[in-house]
């Protein structure tokens, strides 16, 4: 559920980084925070345990000039990956406009990846939404580990569907793939935002796919 304030000339959109525990979701936000022009971002807030594991969520607002004359705010969230925090994940998913699923390329994490993706689908169903209706980008992270799972296996495991999700290979710790992923999900979210509001004749006059 995006939000438009015509008086303030502001659009707000919500993007959630999802995936199993330790796959690199928080690292994605940290890298964006560190590398992006500081005028384009707010603070990165982490609600974490003392052991740095995400307890509640991480949050960081980004601002961009996506529409002429409007300020577009992307609210970036991560969820805690650990299985027991499912209630928290559901809270964070409320009103989501787009998702990045951060998969862990380590061979030992394949079951957790698949389980987390199934959990995402379940949680979306609870709010009467479906993976596939909401823009989602798959990030194959930790491509640098020695036992990195071959991409074709990741594709088979996580992206075996009629309409495939866009994918990016990443090494979040070095920043590789992080901005590519962010720009793709931002773009998909904007396109969907325009498309779902398009039936309101003239409301959105120009749908420019770039």
């Amino acid at each position: 559920m995006s939000f438009v304030n015509f008086k303030k000339k502001e659009v707000q959109l919500k993007i959630v980084y999802y995936g199993p525990g330790m796959s690199g979701k928080t690292t994605n936000l940290q890298v964006i925070h560190r590398m992006i022009n500081p005028t384009a971002r707010g603070d990165l807030t982490s609600v974490a345990t003392s052991g740095e594991r995400t307890l509640f969520f991480d949050f960081m607002p980004l601002v961009a000039q996506a529409f002429e004359g409007y300020e577009t705010r992307f609210q970036l969230y991560t969820v805690p990956g650990q299985v027991i925090y499912n209630l928290t994940r559901r809270l964070v998913l409320r009103g989501v406009d787009g998702m990045v699923f951060v998969a862990d390329s380590q061979w030992s994490k394949m079951a957790e990846n698949a389980e987390s993706l199934a959990n995402l689908a379940d949680n979306l169903a609870l709010q009467r939404e479906r993976l596939g209706d909401i823009p989602c980008v798959l990030q194959y992270n930790k491509r640098d580990v020695p036992d990195a799972t071959p991409l074709h296996y990741l594709e088979y495991l996580l992206n075996n569907r009629d309409v495939q999700l866009p994918t990016f290979n990443a090494v979040a710790t070095t920043g590789e793939g992080v901005f590519e992923t962010l720009n793709m999900i931002a773009r998909l979210v904007l396109h969907r935002f325009l498309a779902v509001n398009k039936h309101k004749e003239d409301g959105v006059r120009e749908l420019v796919l770039v």
Binding site: M35, A66, F67, E68, F179, G203, V208
Partner: peptide, 23 residues
């Protein structure tokens, strides 16, 4: 009632990627 977005055309800027690393 669809009165709302009407008259508020939102036009996507197309100047390359939205977010970049670096200043």
């Amino acid at each position: 009632e669809a009165e709302d977005l009407a008259g508020h055309p939102l036009v996507l800027n197309r100047a390359g990627p939205l977010f970049r690393a670096g200043p």
